[in-house]
Write a protein that binds this DNA or RNA. Sequence first.
RNA 1: ACCCGGGUGGUGGAACUGGUAGACACGCAGGACUUAAAAUCCUGUUUGCAGCAAUGCAAGUGUGGGUUCAACUCCCAUCCCGGGUACCA
Length: 864
Amino acid sequence: MEYNFRKIEKHWQEKWKAENAYTVSNHSEKPKCYVLDMFPYPSGAGLHVGHPLGYIASDIYARFKRLKGFNVLHPMGYDSFGLPAEQYALETGQHPATTTQNNITTFRSQLENIGFSFDWSREVRTSDPSYYRWTQWIFLQIFNSWYDHEKNKARPISELIEAFEKEGNGFLKDHVAGDIFSAEDWEIFDEKQQQDILMQYRLAYTAYGEVNWCAALGTVLANDEVINGVSERGGHPVEKKQMRQWYMRITAYAERLLQGLDTVSFSDAMKEMQKNWIGKSEGAEIVFPLSTRGEGLGVRVYTTRPDTIFGVDFMVLAPEHDLVSKITTAEQQHAINEYLQYVKSRSERERLAEVKQITGAFTGAHAINPFDGRLIPIWISEYVLAGYGTGAIMAVPCGDQRDFAFAKHFNIPITNIIGEHFNGEEANPTTEAYLSNSGFLDGMLMRDAISVATAKLEQEGLGKRKINYKMRDAGFSRQRYWGEPFPIIYKEGIPYPVDEKDLPVELPHVDSYSPGPEGQGPLANITEWVLIPGPSSLVERETNTMPGYAGSSWYFLRYMDPHNDQTFADKKATDYWNQVDVYVGGTEHAVGHLLYSRMWTKVLFDLGYISFDEPFKKLVNQGMIQGSSRFVYRLSMSKPFFDDYDFLRENGIQIFVSNNLKEKHSLAGFFETIRMNFPQLDYSFFDMEIVSQRFLKLYVNVNLVDGVELDINAFRKSKPEYSNAHFILEDGSVNSPLSTRGERQGARYICGVETEKMSKSKLNTINPDELVLKYGADTFRMYEMFLGPVEQSKPWDTKGIEGVHRFLRKLWRLYYDEVKGQVWNDYKPTNDELKILHRTIKKIEEDTEHFSYNTAVSAFMVCV
RNA sequence: ACCCGGGUGGUGGAACUGGUAGACACGCAGGACUUAAAAUCCUGUUUGCAGCAAUGCAAGUGUGGGUUCAACUCCCAUCCCGGGUACCA
């Protein structure tokens, strides 16, 4: 009997299914263990070999824990709302619900093929109304909450309204948003004023924010859809536009998100990424009065280095700063307008990345240094962002490199406050220098001067101590179709929550996925859905939808009680399963999903719906399995280069050149081959310099490539337009469908290679199905684990799978002989044998607890 | 540009706390079995030099410096690759 993996795996998979072997109960005497994977987005490309890496690791862990006597929750589901489905719908007209369903069917069968021990009875889909009903419900809880900084928790907005009625908003002290009002004031405010004020406290709120607006497409674009400032589709210009948006007030949780990290087991790198994202800094907010225009106005800046205040030589406002229009002098108006126009076309990334290129404009206005009365010119520049701090900085060129470069570029004189620590060549951001030219701070060590300066500022009422966070509130609306509708209706322009008993607000069916007027989402086109017949006034629905991370911010709770139609999850269930014990997923979610889901958990905890405020006790980051992309190089047929050579174009002849021949130095052979194959052409037109840049790099499906060598015939068959393509091979000979002349034995077409994310568009995905079919799920699983540490990113390579498969066959033969059948016996093992066995068991157990599966597999191989 | 990872034979990787670099596997080469092939088994395999050989000598963990009796491991600098950078998921 040989190792018939197909029969074995089929047998067991059917048995598991028939017996619901992995269905888990919420009631058990055993200790619980919750092993969770980041659920996949069901993309049209299907599952690729990168997905299962984490799933296999967690599945091994889940099985291990079951064997160790735990009641293990190990579920799977789909993050099924998202942009790609909608783009696909735009291109093909197929409804996202249909394509998503198809994709899920594919994913499910692929997952089952690999033999996971998921409890499929708990499957969730974020796009299912019975699921997003509760996403909407949780959104309403967040909308109906405010953050009490005194008690340090979220509370129902009704309690805030009561407080306003009783004593106004003065009791909020440092956290007053906007103006202070009394109970009497509150009484007098009309409905709109009251709602506007409440909006400034709600944890989910509307405000104006910037979007990528593409006028030509009439739509708002995701950052991903903008390439080098133009739209990916069509290459139209993109600019920024202010639009009303929904936000999550995640900044209210900044401190708790930071402190919560101490209570969970994430890698240090992960914690550091989250810490840096939150970006806590301690410093001071200082108001610099303006010298002339705008009495009473001042420039409020945030700085972590108030000790350097005597070194301020200029100030910089973000171009979007409110003051810019108010303080700009008539002489400077033109320059400022021009600069603002330029900034409008720049993405935030570009603004921060291209620091070598210094840009800015002078407003003509000056501020006054509150300590020495010096006049300070006020500039605007794109390196200051409106969203961070106060959107304005005090520039100290001798201590900050960007300020220094700016001063040099615009010839602004530099004041030296650190003596010999400043060499005039570059800024020195030290805190260890003694201050000079610094008034009352003279002679003080900078490190000590920070608190002295802050104290003085507070004492004189010029500023105050301030903790600042770099993190911004999270944009929560998308002008798209395929997402959760907001449970929000507008009456006279004021947003109100939909009654909970009317949930879910179902996503209506549309026939067109094109954007609505003014960049609104496609839902705006469905007037009969948007307009709700009301008693008197205009009542309409919110037409934005929620972003991709809405559904994924709480799905781990739904798995605990997936069929409950009374609540998102029964408290008994969430109490029992509690925190996720091990969460497996990639680092690409480090600052998105992992922060949002932590925030939602904290809100639900504050409101008393669950009894833990960190969702994930332990996080294991599986490395990304990258695709190894292959490229072919096609001679460009575009004008003007090939203008004279209609022959090639008319005949649809494509010429591909092997990787190492695309460089200039080897083009001589290339001309020769062109001439040989197309004697009717005059080839003297070729200009070497130009030709070298005239190869288009095209993705070729990795499955048509063996290592780096292209399977030319398979490639020709893959697309009709390639059927009569010519290939200039590595040795300069030609593989041509017209003639085989010049083709030599062993000449190959070599592809270019690059490592990048696995994706459909890059044609570098490897489908696990084929590997499972050929080698079996056990080989596939074991191989993925053997590839290297789970945490490490690595390009996929199928080469080594044979070795693992051979090992499993060898293992099988220890028990079954092809001829004799069963060959095991019950001889008593020797002490030495037992020693090896137990040593191996110990090693594998320890490695399994630590997710070091690659070394566990090695140990197993050595033992056998 | 910034934040977080990573770089070790022909290849994936191992080396746990600073102590024999290259476990295990792939690939490759040679051999056994076979009419043949596949499968299987055995042997060799970091590089260079010397030797019939056992073996010996030297170099070697991206690059350049440093600390140490001892460095893949610690420190400084630098290059390259991957992930993220707030509307891809």
